[in-house]
Write a protein that binds this DNA or RNA. Structure first.
Length: 153
DNA sequence: GCCAACGTTGGC
DNA sequence: GCCAACGTTGGC
């Protein structure tokens, strides 16, 4: 089992949006950073779990938990000329960008705010808490995963 | 709205 | 291959 953290700005796509999807499932499109792309393409597998993190919000926070329900495949938004994620350099026969499918598993009644996380012992070294961390797809260690889950019983 | 951190681009 | 310029992210 591996664990992840996925960032999204709730104004554009929140955990409530995901919850309202058919099957509470969508594909995680729009990742346009190579390090994040590599995690999605190479390391994320069906059955893995991920935190759904709200960035750019008044109180940035982990909002819930999602499950990866499909291994990586080409990001369709890269091939749609009208999409803000369109990338003319991404070749359908050799795609540059990838998505996985995610399904909402849990929504925290009280989101775990970044401020709260910063006060938790045992999260030393967590990518999210590092100065200048901007990666929108990050691995989470099993230890950190457990510590964070225990915050909400 | 500010600004630090970071990634990408492009001239050389 | 270096690095300045530029654009974006994201907390505050």
């Amino acid at each position: 089992m591996r664990y992840w953290l996925l960032k999204s700005e709730p104004d554009s796509y929140s955990i409530d949006h995901l919850w309202a999807e058919p099957g509470r499932t969508t594909f995680w499109d729009g990742v346009r950073n190579y390090q994040a792309r590599n995690f999605i393409r190479d390391d994320m597998k069906k059955g893995h779990l991920a935190f759904f993190y709200h960035s750019g919000a008044p109180a940035p926070a982990i909002a819930g938990i999602v499950e990866i329900t499909r291994d990586a495949y080409a990001d369709p938004s890269a091939f749609e000329p009208g999409s803000k994620y369109f990338d003319s350099k991404s070749d359908p026969d050799n795609p540059t960008w990838f998505v996985v499918d995610v399904k909402a598993k849990k929504k925290f009644s009280e989101p775990i705010t970044l401020a709260e996380l910063r006060d938790v012992k045992g999260l030393d070294g967590m990518e999210l808490l590092k100065r200048g961390s901007r990666l929108s797809v990050q691995p989470v260690s099993e230890r950190h995963w457990k510590v964070i889950n225990e915050l909400r019983g």
